[in-house]
Write a protein that binds this DNA or RNA. Structure first.
Lengths: 220, 220
DNA sequence: TAAAAAATATGAGATATCTCACATTATTGT
DNA sequence: ACAATAATGTGAGATATCTCATATTTTTTA
């Protein structure tokens, strides 16, 4: 992680205004910083002392279980807060967050913690953010247990395909969707067999859009 | 649902003080109400116009999927807010909430919505509540996909057993834990076979506490 | 650019979990 | 007190999903 210079700072603050999040001047407490691809923003189990607001980039939220199994819990995409739970509660240790791409964040030091926690404007925005977060997680996991993997995968392919081509990393996606690597490959092969997808060098091409939509619509 | 009289109102307000949630006087906007066992607090799909704070009782949060499958998402236990997401966002329709026992709530009309959304004291408490909610849901569902049902059931039995006896309703629990009724019965039978539980008229008695703890501790 | 590490691929066998059908109690409303 | 409804219990067969072993290809790193 490194902190950006005055020029870059000005540029980002103009591009992604944040002043209206607060009813006091946040600039003295704010820095613009950059994480390289693959860098860890929070180490799992640490006690973070900074509130981040991600403005560009993408990261993954991880958690390691006692049995050593690692779950990819969520993709975090800009714009969003990180470390907000730790701001509200004392001494909460965090899950791990690792960037997927180069990521730019506003970092807000906890030296203005008191001010933040007394600022209705900021708190209201945080409430909305947290509420949406809870709703989204609930929806995702409720689906997970109510639908077979086939439907969830179809939905995910629709969501993540670019120009009709699906080319995510299997190792990552099987974690995210909560199935084994083997099973993901099985179902992808099955989609190919059923002529819904076609596997080429460039990725899995969607050839039966309609059928895919049908499968995924059983969810939404 | 019916609204309690002045005496009862005073009694509850003394027993469960709520004044310090707000920096203004909430009493003019507040009523104490009671829901009977099995009554619906929110009908699924409706647009609630009241913020509730449950002070006594227990309820279940439900959601119906497109395919007709119903998920029991969460047990809601006092004390907690209900309808807070709908207060923050315009026109959000809600999931269904049905009481399990007689339930007492403070109901807060949306006529003080503006005041609430400008009150840092209240918003801060709401943030903490929402943050915990998100954390809890994440933990629950992350476990769901990382551990086989055997472990989760062991943990749930430990949690819900009363004096060493487990006697929840199967129909409800299989929904909550996200498995079929049949499978729940299988695993309970398996626990009996392994002499972890013993089935009697009064319920399933825990006879091998140690082994049960072992199974469930693989999670926590 | 060679070696190491990560990602992809596939087979085979095990098991966790589901669906459906049906019988037997409890519980509840009238 | 009786009918209706909900909850419990069990068998059998299907299938969704996992584990493990092993080979190949791609990407990363020294």
């Amino acid at each position: 992680m490194h902190i950006l210079t005055a020029e870059a700072r000005t540029h980002y603050l103009e591009k992604y205004p944040i002043h209206d999040f607060f009813s006091f001047d946040i600039e003295p407490y704010l820095e613009v910083c950059q994480f390289d691809k693959g860098e860890w923003i929070f180490q799992e189990g640490s006690f973070p002392e900074t509130l981040y607001y991600m403005i560009e980039g993408k990261a993954k939220l991880y958690m390691t279980h006692k049995n050593g199994k690692v779950s990819l819990i969520e993709y975090l995409e800009a714009p969003r807060f990180m470390g907000e739970i730790e701001l509200l509660n004392e001494a909460r240790y965090t899950k791990g967050i690792q960037t997927v791409t180069k990521t730019i964040c506003y970092s807000i030091t906890q030296s203005c913690k008191e001010k933040l926690l007394a600022d209705a404007l900021f708190l209201r925005r945080l409430c909305v953010f947290l509420g949406e977060k809870a709703t989204k997680i609930t929806a995702k996991y409720t689906q997970n247990q109510a639908y077979p993997f086939e439907n969830r995968l179809a939905a995910f392919i629709q969501l993540s395909a670019d120009q009709g081509v699906y080319k995510e990393k299997h190792t990552e996606i099987c974690e995210y969707l909560g199935v084994s690597y083997r099973h993901l490959l099985y179902v992808l092969a099955q989609f190919c067999e059923e002529k819904i997808l076609e596997k080429r060098k460039s990725g899995y091409h969607i050839i039966d859009e309609k059928r895919l939509a049908q499968l995924s619509q059983e969810i939404q």
